[in-house]
């Protein structure tokens, strides 16, 4: 990698919250800007230099034909491709419409549906091109982002969590909200990284960091049933900002690492 690696930040269907997390590195932002060469980051700068870059950060999910073409082009121009956030790594909250008739969905929101062009599904970047590093979270965690940038600059792999939110509760000496308070919690299925934010404020984790590696939903779902959650409540809880139901999305099979 060059002395100052070149960097691009791309947006697909998303809310900009993960790009904002880059700008929220308030105390580190200027130091980072000195160490990397930002070629493409329209959210932050009107200097735009097309062409190959060492590292691309990609926010957002793929929801249009044009975006399918665009992600392949970005992949071919990028050394490392790092997806940031729940949309890019999992399809995002907008994947809630997957499996629903898109025509009906469009009609709900738009009076003149023929102006709107969209795919039937919202899919993660890895369903379309190989991804080198994934940062989960809605939004991503600033600490993980800084660790990833620091790792890139020193030429080592980033140290990212692999465990569930449960481990973060234990590390924070946080009493389990489900064991002690019978509050349904998705912590056992959810990738660590937030620092157990929801249990700390006394609510159950709602899974916004997406699934941990190899989650096992079945025992947790029976526990939810014992806690009195209806089928509808369980389904909505598991499929919210992220999908923790363990159903592979229709095109995930085409991912190639």
């Amino acid at each position: 990698m060059h002395q100052r690696p070149t960097l691009a930040v791309w947006k697909f269907a998303s809310c900009d919250g993960c790009q904002l997390t880059i700008l929220n590195c308030e105390t580190e932002l200027l130091a980072i800007a000195d160490r990397v060469d930002i070629r493409w980051f329209p959210e932050a700068t009107s200097t735009m230099i097309p062409g190959p870059v060492d590292v691309s950060f990609v926010e957002g999910s793929v929801t249009t034909d044009h975006d399918v073409e665009r992600i392949h082009e970005i992949r071919s121009q990028s050394g490392l491709l790092i997806t940031i956030g729940a949309c890019a790594t999992g399809g995002g909250v907008q994947a809630l419409r997957n499996g629903v008739d898109t025509g009906d969905v469009i009609k709900t929101v738009y009076a003149d549906p023929h102006y709107i062009s969209t795919l039937d599904t919202s899919t993660p970047i890895a369903s379309h091109v190989p991804v080198d590093i994934e940062l989960q979270g809605c939004p991503i965690d600033k600490g993980q982002l800084l660790e990833t940038i620091a790792a890139l600059l020193s030429g080592r792999p980033p140290r990212l969590p692999q465990s569930s939110v449960c481990l973060e509760c234990k590390a924070a000496a946080q009493t389990c909200v489900m064991v002690a308070g019978a509050t349904p919690c998705l912590g056992p299925l959810t990738m660590a990284g937030c620092g157990a934010l929801c249990p700390v404020v006394g609510r159950g984790c709602y899974g916004c960091f997406g699934p941990m590696e190899n989650p096992n939903p079945a025992p947790l779902v029976s526990r939810f049933e014992q806690l009195g959650m209806s089928h509808g409540q369980r389904t909505r809880f598991l499929r919210s900002v992220c999908d923790l139901a363990g159903q592979p999305s229709p095109t995930t099979g085409s991912a190639h690492e």
Binding site: A13, T63, Q94, R97, I106, T108, R236, S240
Partner: peptide, 24 residues
């Protein structure tokens, strides 16, 4: 900007859910 259809998928969600869903 690709549409994300919030008003459509909010239908049928629990009454407290718009707080976390529309934040997105």
């Amino acid at each position: 900007e690709p549409p994300r259809f919030f008003e459509a998928f909010l239908r049928g969600r629990g009454f407290e859910e718009p707080i976390d869903l529309t934040a997105r």
